[in-house]
Write a protein that binds this DNA or RNA. Structure first.
Ligand SMILES: NC(=O)c1ccc[n+]([C@@H]2O[C@H](COP(=O)([O-])OP(=O)(O)OC[C@H]3O[C@@H](n4cnc5c(N)ncnc54)[C@H](O)[C@@H]3O)[C@@H](O)[C@H]2O)c1
Ligand SMILES: NC(=O)c1ccc[n+]([C@@H]2O[C@H](COP(=O)([O-])OP(=O)(O)OC[C@H]3O[C@@H](n4cnc5c(N)ncnc54)[C@H](O)[C@@H]3O)[C@@H](O)[C@H]2O)c1
Lengths: 214, 214
DNA sequence: GTAACATTGTTAAATTTGTAACAATGATAT
DNA sequence: ATATCATTGTTACAAATTTAACAATGTTAC
């Protein structure tokens, strides 16, 4: 454990994840050093914010060359990743669930979707992008057996609270809920919720407010 | 225009969207009045926050019965919706794009996806959940012809900046970018970006930090 | 060598967001 | 009638986040 003794701000964590993704691209293009204003431009933010984030994680750049891309990637990895990686499951292998599996897998070495769950017999015991779909009745069993710690919920909204409860009982430590229905979890479980309709309505509100529509 | 003369906080807008969705459900169940603590519980937030949001939009509840569900829905509608509704297009009719179309449409009367765009000839001129897919070369034409003001980007990440630029030229006023690649737009265009990998990495970080993994 | 310069690291201020405190209200019970 | 009560509306406070300001640094040009 290097520099993340003190808790980092939520927003900094989000940006670190994004910095890393683009730093990896930079590295693959052979770029070895990068300035705060270059990172900033990639992400549409200010150089100050980049420098502040990097300060918080204890990274030092050099004055005339900026930050060492490889070092920075490693450091962010030490903060975001766990040594052996974490396992993820998806509950609800519908349109969104299948999209996610196809999209995520193979992108992160330290984070992989290893199981799916559904109630629909047509989907159970089939594979989706290499991920096996189990019946949701085996949720508890499989999660414990495989040491899965994170779950993504993509079942129909009404089912979400029920699924969340089962996940917590099964010992899940973090939940990403894509359902518009908010769920309750025990305080030791980290919960992140995202609602696409809200995002779209928010865009619509600001379009309206910018005076371009009434 | 009633009470949204002064700008409402970002976060309040997000919550209003969520309040409304659940208020509609309440109404459909015959519930006519609701207390701040009931709304709060649905969304895992505090009653104070609910009251504060409603204060900001100028809504008054009654003391013993709480808020009138129907009135509240109407008021939120006056804030979030435009009279004639706004039209939305999706650029990139892949896995995510198709999921979104299937999911969104029919859910909001004042916000509807009316067109899709893709480069793949196999997809062009087909319908997806009732939405026609045009070749992306016709982007400008169709957006202007149909008065589309909002776009959702779900093309491969590398294509996103290019697509965004075209959208802005075509006169789009708001963009929702689901690509992990950040895009630049003119300042009068409202931009919202969401990155699922970041969300998942954030969950993983907090799982790790809560001491459940190393 | 030294002046000019771009860039970093850090502290301070501003802004945004959430929380707490509490008076005001008016329905209900006695 | 009056006291009690749950609930609202609002103000004041606290926490989180972003932005600004600027000294420190070491490289480059001369
Ligand atoms: N499709 C999208 O683009 C999109 C976007 C945003 C949010 N969402 C949300 O994601 C959720 C799923 O959307 P979708 O379009 O994939 O729907 P879908 O109907 O295609 O998929 C839902 C899947 O969940 C399964 N399921 C139902 N009950 C279950 C249970 N108790 N346990 C396990 N599996 C169960 C169904 O068999 C089905 O396969 C919905 O809540 C929706 O609101 C979807
Ligand atoms: N699938 C997911 O669950 C998911 C989740 C998060 C983010 N994303 C992001 O969404 C984007 C799309 O993901 P996907 O899984 O749907 O990919 P996909 O490959 O299934 O779909 C991409 C579609 O875009 C089309 N396209 C390519 N270039 C285009 C252009 N210039 N103009 C118009 N259309 C073009 C392709 O023909 C294809 O139909 C990616 O950037 C991905 O990072 C996807």
């Amino acid at each position: 454990m290097i520099a993340n003794l003190k808790a980092l701000p939520d927003k900094t964590i989000e940006r670190l994840s994004q910095y890393r993704r683009n730093l990896l691209i930079c590295l693959s293009k052979g770029k070895q050093h990068i300035f705060s204003h270059e990172i900033a431009q990639i992400h549409n933010i200010t150089p100050v914010q980049v420098r502040r984030d990097l300060m918080l994680i204890g990274h030092s750049g050099t004055l005339r060359k900026g930050y060492d891309v490889k070092e920075l990637i490693d450091l962010i990895g030490r903060i975001l990743d766990t040594k052996d990686g974490l396992k993820v499951c998806v509950v609800g292998i519908g349109n969104l669930g299948r999209s996610l599996i196809g999209y995520f897998n193979g992108r992160r070495s330290k984070l992989s979707i290893v199981a799916g769950f559904d109630v629909n017999p047509d989907k159970v015991d089939k594979n989706y992008a290499g991920v096996h779909c189990h019946h949701v009745d085996r949720l508890n069993e499989i999660i414990k057996r495989d040491g899965i710690t994170i779950a993504i919920i993509t079942v129909p909204a009404e089912q979400a609270p029920d699924v969340a409860e089962k996940l917590v009982i099964a010992g899940i430590k973090g939940i990403l809920n894509y359902t518009p229905k908010s769920v309750n979890v025990a305080p030791h479980v980290y919960l992140e919720e995202y609602d696409m309709i809200t995002s779209l309505e928010k865009v619509a509100y600001f379009v309206k407010r910018n005076g371009n529509a009434e």
